[in-house]
Structures are given as structure tokens and as C-alpha cells.
Write a protein that binds this DNA or RNA. Structure first.
Lengths: 247, 247
DNA sequence: GGCTGTGCTTGATCTGGGTCAAGGTCAAGC
DNA sequence: GCTTGACCTTGACCCAGATCAAGCACAGCC
């Protein structure tokens, strides 16, 4: 478990991903020193566990690059992913001493960490930070509710299509790689992790991926690289409203 | 749609349920006037729709009594409940103009409403309120993640048992009615609403309720009144860890 | 009293996705 | 070049829960 501490007080806020930079909104103010004093980086390898549910967790963090997953496991081993953290997402609860979920790196991962207690103390004095954190938490709640619809009511095929569209929309690489409406990206998850995300078995994930490929909705280059010839066709498979749902 | 406005500026903060009172933490300060100036009550009947997804929503609210549900509906009518609001729960997003979900009253309901824009403005000046709101939102996110495990991985019987234990634990009436470890309460939802909560059909809900009754895990007095002779026996049916999961 | 509508239960049958099992692909290490 | 192990695919079969259908319980109303 190599937990190298990189830069410490000399970290420049410009390093931070967008949302994290929003947390540091008062970069010009004297609060910056305070923020930086409790900030450090950690790196993890794909597959590593960052914390187990119930472990002490003495930091909160922002994802710099890579992907992390929050999951819950039942006594008999059934497993459900309940959070997927991409760059700029926030990890941890400032006022909670122990982790509620297993946290794992599904790709190589870099976190920008803040010591938990000083960070929590800062919330009461810094309205901008706690407001921004509220915004982010509300967004995550919306994402969780979208996810609940997927888990409770969608078919296996709709689940896969929805998952692919979620990753495609959030993956920063897609826009540059796009040629003539085509969208391409690498899956940051194994088939098993996808199954845990979607409430399926890995066999069903595999079969449905093959089905979408057979029907020309996606192309597979290797196991992990996805090409979507026509994003609208994929969206038709998700079961979601064509529009963003806004009337 | 009778939306009677009850008390207005003369409302006493003592009326407010616990969490809402926390929002008014500065009752003694001069901010009270500000809070009350934007506060009013609304009543709804069981079954009424409060707002539809996509509608303008010019208030946020705290549930005073009764139960409200947030749900999402797919084009073909498949429906998933994504939030169940009991007394003291918070409804709405201060900075969002339109509702994201259908909101319905599943029982007779009273809301304590705040005009959205003034409430949102208040957040930036009142650290206590926004911090408290952050706490509540994080709790809701945890509840949503528990719910995701239920939707993705639990069997129909485990879903029903989990649902009953959730309601039993949150229903304020249960503690007084308890005699010798027995727990009793009224279901605030129809079988159909339970099905929407659990990602099942109403027939499966009915069958599993009958199953739990046949096996002596619960007693049914009428359609809606539940008696749980031994709460531990019910918990064994949920699939959850015996303990709260805290190591 | 009977009628109507809403909510609930139960039975018969069907099917999507789980389970079990075999084998394929590919990269790393000897 | 062979072995090993991680990851993925595919096939055969099965079952939990969906679907379709009938009927019950009970409150409100004429």
C-alpha cells in the first residue's frame, strides 16, 4: 500500500480539479494558508482498497484523476456499488470518523486529501466551502436517485446502455476523440465492477454487451475500448426520456 | 387542490419538527423575523400530487406531519420511488427552479414551506442553516445508498422485511405502543406505493407480506396495521448485518 | 339494503436474468 | 514457447418474480 505524500505546503491551487478549486474559492484570501496546511496527495493502484467500511477515516478528499468506487457488501458476499467517483468528485464525510462503505480504486487513482478534523472545523467559518459542498452533495443525491430508477425498474439491456451513456458523458476524453458524431472511450471498470454497479451478474453484463455489439449500437475494440457510432441510438436503448426530462 | 395557508408571521418556532427547529437554530437572534417572513404552512390530502417533475417549484419545505414520496416515471409507466419524506425531512433544492421528481402525499400531509429564493439567499449569510442542510443532505445520501443495496441485491422477502424495519424505526408512534418488545405501527403506504419503493410489483408485495404473516414474522390487523412480535426475527429476514454495521 | 370503486389477495403461467460449467484471450513470468 | 492467472464470453438450464386473471373486503353512497 504505497501512500506517497507528494507536495505539501507548497501546493498550488491551480493543480486542483474544477470542483476542488471551487472549494478553494477564496484563494486570494488569508484562508489559503489554512487550506494548504491540511492538504496532501495520495496515489493508489487499480484494484487497491482505500478503506474498508467501518475503518477509521482521518481524511476527506477530492479525486484528481482515476476512478474510485464506494460499495456495500452483504454477509453472504452479495455486493452493490453505491458510488462512482470520477475526477473532481468528493470523498468522505467531514464529521464522520469511520467509513460507511468500502472504497476501492477501480483504476490508478490520485486523491487530493484534507485532514478531516481541520477541514470540518473550516466548514463552520467558511460559508463558501460549506455551500459548495452542499451543492455537490445535492448533485450526488440526484445521481443516486437516477441510479435507483435504473436498479429498480430497468431491464439488463437498458442498464448497460444507461451505464455507457453515463460514462461517455462524464469521461473528459470523449469530446476530443469524437469524429463526426462518433463517441469513443475506455471503460474504467471490469465486467464484475459493472455488474456491481448495475445490480446484475458479470455473465449478464457480458451477454448484454455482446447483444448491443451484435445490434450495432456499440463497437468493442479490445475488451475495454468502446466506440458508439451514434449516441442517439444508444440513448434510445436507455429507457430514459429523449430530452433531459425538463419540460 | 385545497392549499390553505395557515399561520403566517405569527408562527411560533416551537411548532417546527426537530430538524426544522435546527434550521431555526438562531431563534433568539434577529434572524428569526427573516425566517418567519418567508414561512407558511400547506396541507394536502392522501393521494394528492404536490408537484410534477418539471413543474416550477417556488418553495422548499419541511414535513410537519404525514408522509410524502418522490418518484420518477418512465415513458412506458414504470415507476420508481426515490425518496420517502417523513416528519422533519426536507423537500426541495434551494437553488433549483423546477422539480426533478413527482412529489405526492401518500397520507394526509402538512408542509412547513419557505419561499425558495429568500431561503436560498439566507443560506449564504447563515452558516448554521447551510451546515445543517448539508448534514441532512448527507444523511439522505446515506439512506439512498442503503436503498440502492436493497434495490440491486435483495430478494423480494428481504426487501419487504427491510422496508418494515425502516418504517418501524422511523415511525414516532412505535415506541409508545410497544408492549414487551412488541412493535406495532400503521403502514403509511398502499401496496402499490410499497411496490414502487421496493422495485417490485404490487402482487409480489402482497404475496411476500402474506408469507411473512404465515411464518409468524409479522401479524396483520386489517390491511395497514402491522404488529411485529419480535423485532430481531424481522431483522434476520432483512439480509442486513445484525449490528448497525459499525465495527 | 344493494351498488360501486378502491385496495388487496391469490392462483396459473411465463420469462428475464441468475446459476453452473466450459472454454477463450491475452499479458506477464519462467 | 509454455504456464499461469486475470478477465471475459458463451451455452444449457432453472427459478424468483412478473404478468394475466379472477375474486374478496370494505367504505361510501344512493
Amino acid at each position: 500500500m504505497p501512500q506517497r505524500q507528494l507536495a505539501f505546503p507548497q501546493v498550488d491551487c491551480a493543480d486542483c480539479p474544477i470542483r476542488h478549486r471551487a472549494v478553494c474559492a477564496r484563494c486570494e484570501s488569508d484562508e489559503l494558508e489554512h487550506l494548504e496546511a491540511i492538504k496532501y496527495y495520495r496515489n493508489y493502484e487499480a484494484g487497491q482498497t482505500i478503506v474498508w467500511a467501518g475503518d477509521k477515516m482521518d481524511f476527506v478528499a477530492s479525486v484528481v484523476h482515476g476512478v474510485a468506487a464506494l460499495s456495500q457488501t452483504m454477509e453472504d458476499g452479495r455486493r452493490q456499488m453505491v458510488g462512482l467517483l470520477l475526477p473532481s468528485d468528493f470523498l468522505g464525510r467531514p464529521n464522520r470518523e469511520r467509513a460507511t462503505y468500502d472504497v476501492t480504486a477501480t483504476t490508478d487513482l490520485q486523491l487530493c486529501c484534507f485532514r478531516r478534523v481541520p477541514f470540518h472545523d473550516m466548514l463552520s467559518t467558511n460559508a463558501h466551502v460549506s455551500q459548495r459542498l452542499l451543492e455537490m452533495t445535492l448533485d450526488e443525491l440526484d445521481a443516486a436517485r437516477e441510479w435507483m430508477l435504473l436498479l429498480g425498474r430497468k431491464t439488463a439491456r437498458e442498464k448497460i446502455a444507461s451505464f455507457l451513456s453515463i460514462i461517455a458523458r462524464r469521461d473528459a476524453t470523449i469530446n476530443q476523440n469524437a469524429k463526426s458524431g462518433e463517441v469513443a472511450f475506455d471503460l474504467p471498470l471490469t465486467r464484475e465492477a459493472m455488474a456491481d454497479y448495475l445490480g446484475l451478474t458479470l455473465e449478464t453484463v457480458s451477454r448484454q454487451m455482446s447483444g448491443l455489439k451484435r445490434d450495432g449500437v456499440i463497437r468493442l475494440e479490445g475488451k475495454r475500448h468502446i466506440v458508439i457510432p451514434d449516441f442517439d441510438v444508444l440513448m434510445d436503448e436507455t429507457g430514459d426520456d429523449a430530452d433531459g426530462g425538463v419540460f
